[in-house]
């Protein structure tokens, strides 16, 4: 039963590819370029391998830097926000403003501030990842079990001990909820950032920049290949977060109890 279950995604994938071919051949000859065959997309991967590889790496680097910066800054902000309801009441509206402002409107402003290229891409990725991280981590920090807080208070624990030994570990599951959302957003942020603020000079263009190039050249198979490269990058980010989450939580968190005990 379990081996069948593992095969299910493969079977679903094969059916999907079959449908793809069927749709392709059902189109008129003139329209077929709109939906290239899967093998044509594979061919594009081969033909454009060097360019796509370099673009994927550039996007990955921008996504990784923005993602890492978002983690560091959001945890620091969450610690600050968790200190008192007054601080939260003062700062939350501005965090909401940041989240509500469309990133594509901010992009031109960032380009004017920091110029096109890597820094702008990183800042855009940071902005898109920051909100889910800070909100979830803050929620985790303020949701610590009241009895555990009382235990630390009774033991006359210092504020530092309470944060390091109690609040931060207790907030880990919440932090990872935010991290998983941010991990899916990071490559998207980097690609969108690259689309608006990318810089091709010296081979530093990312997947967003390649999208513009291929689109202008009507290279449909290469465009699809670019989309799949972005998708693969998303899987790498989310996979890395899931692996880290498993490493840190599987021994003790209830969400892993069915598979582990």
């Amino acid at each position: 039963m379990s081996s069948w279950r593992r095969l299910l995604p493969v079977l679903t994938g094969l059916v999907f590819v079959g449908i793809w071919y069927a749709v392709h051949f059902s189109l008129s000859t003139e329209e077929r370029y709109l939906l290239p065959r899967p093998d044509a997309i594979l061919q594009a991967f081969s033909d454009e391998g060097a360019v796509l590889g370099s673009a994927t790496l550039n996007t990955a680097l921008g996504a990784l830097c923005g993602f890492a910066a978002a983690i560091v800054v959001s945890v620091a902000c969450a610690l600050l926000l968790s200190l008192s309801p007054l601080i939260r009441a003062s700062l939350y509206p501005f965090l909401m403003m940041l989240q509500m402002t469309p990133i594509i409107v901010l992009a031109p402003i960032l380009i004017l501030w920091s110029g096109p290229g890597f820094l702008s891409v990183t800042i855009i990725t940071f902005l898109i990842c920051f909100f889910p991280l800070v909100v979830n981590t803050t929620q985790g920090l303020i949701s610590t079990d009241r009895n555990l807080v009382d235990l630390f208070t009774m033991a006359r624990a210092t504020r530092r001990q309470e944060i390091l030994l109690l609040r931060l570990p207790s907030a880990l599951p919440y932090f990872f909820t935010g991290l998983r959302i941010a991990a899916t957003l990071a490559p998207i942020g980097a690609i969108v950032g690259d689309l608006y603020a990318g810089n091709s000079a010296g081979g530093r263009g990312g997947l967003g920049f390649q999208t513009i190039i291929y689109s202008a050249q009507f290279k449909m198979p290469a465009l699809f290949a670019t989309a799949f490269a972005g998708c693969a990058l998303g899987f790498v980010f989310v996979g890395a977060v899931i692996a880290l989450q498993w490493r840190l939580l599987h021994r003790w968190h209830d969400s892993y109890s069915r598979t582990d005990s």
Binding site: D145, N147, L148, D150, L151, M154, A155, R156, L165, L166, P169, S170, L172, R251, W252, H253, D254
Partner: peptide, 18 residues
């Protein structure tokens, strides 16, 4: 007098990650 006493709560109140 904190050092003189210890508290056992209604729940075990253990840190699940330890």
């Amino acid at each position: 007098a904190a050092r003189e006493l210890a508290y056992v709560f209604q729940e075990p109140t253990l840190l699940p990650w330890l």
